[in-house]
Amino acid sequence: MSVVLETRGLTKAFGGLVAVDNVSFQLQESELLALIGPNGAGKSTCFNMLMGQLPPTSGEVFLMGEKITGLKPRQIWRKGVGRTFQITATYSSMTVVENVQMALLSHNGRIFRFRSQAHRLYRKEALALLDMVGMADQADRHCAVLAYGDLKRLELATALAHEPTLLLMDEPTAGMAPKERIALMQLTADIVRDQGVSVLFTEHDMDVVFAHSHRIMVLNRGALIAEGSAAEIRANPMVQEVYLGGGTVFGAEEHADA
């Protein structure tokens, strides 16, 4: 299996505070990799560096062996990385299908076209993507009236528009109802299986993490403290300490998952 994403010694310091400290990991092809950790562990900072929102203080990021450190988000996207946001970002003045069409227009280099009518272009492809996330029946609804869970699914469809090799999902189920969470991650897992996309995601919901991820990394105070399968992570005393010390009801999650 080939390595899709790799970081080497990724570090970010805000003044004296080292938010992400020398993080190195690899993400394999078709892998669903979870990055977990208590609040303030540096997950989002780490993510923002992967996606180009933040320049790292030191360290490097490689995508399919190519260095992408310091590129802008839109350049990284062009290299085949899709992302979803912790707080959804959609175009609220457009319809659902137009949101996806927008990404397709961008992928096909049609942003600076003036003659054609945008709502006719790539509609079929956009509908197919919506169908994949179960949103086809809502295609022509106004995006601003969607329920939050639907917005998340729309974002996923948008992120898949350019057939990415890598999908970065920052807390994909934050703010969703428990049932929706399971459904969304099942959907993601299916997509990983069917399309060979690799996924790196951060998550607070341990049900989601333990049910679907192939491998789990634990970040605490900016440093990776553990890495392994669900069972290994659960049995890891350091992880237990971090989580129980942080006051998270680890026991309850364990039961729910078992």
């Binding site: 996207w77 992302r83 959609t90 942003i111």
Partner: peptide, 24 residues
């Protein structure tokens, strides 16, 4: 109504999403 007009609205509605989907 053209792709450019849509891109302009996209940049207005969510600059974050627009940049993250390759729109300058």
């Amino acid at each position: 109504h053209s792709p450019f007009g849509y891109a302009l609205r996209a940049a207005r509605d969510s600059q974050r999403q627009a940049e993250a989907t390759g729109i300058d």
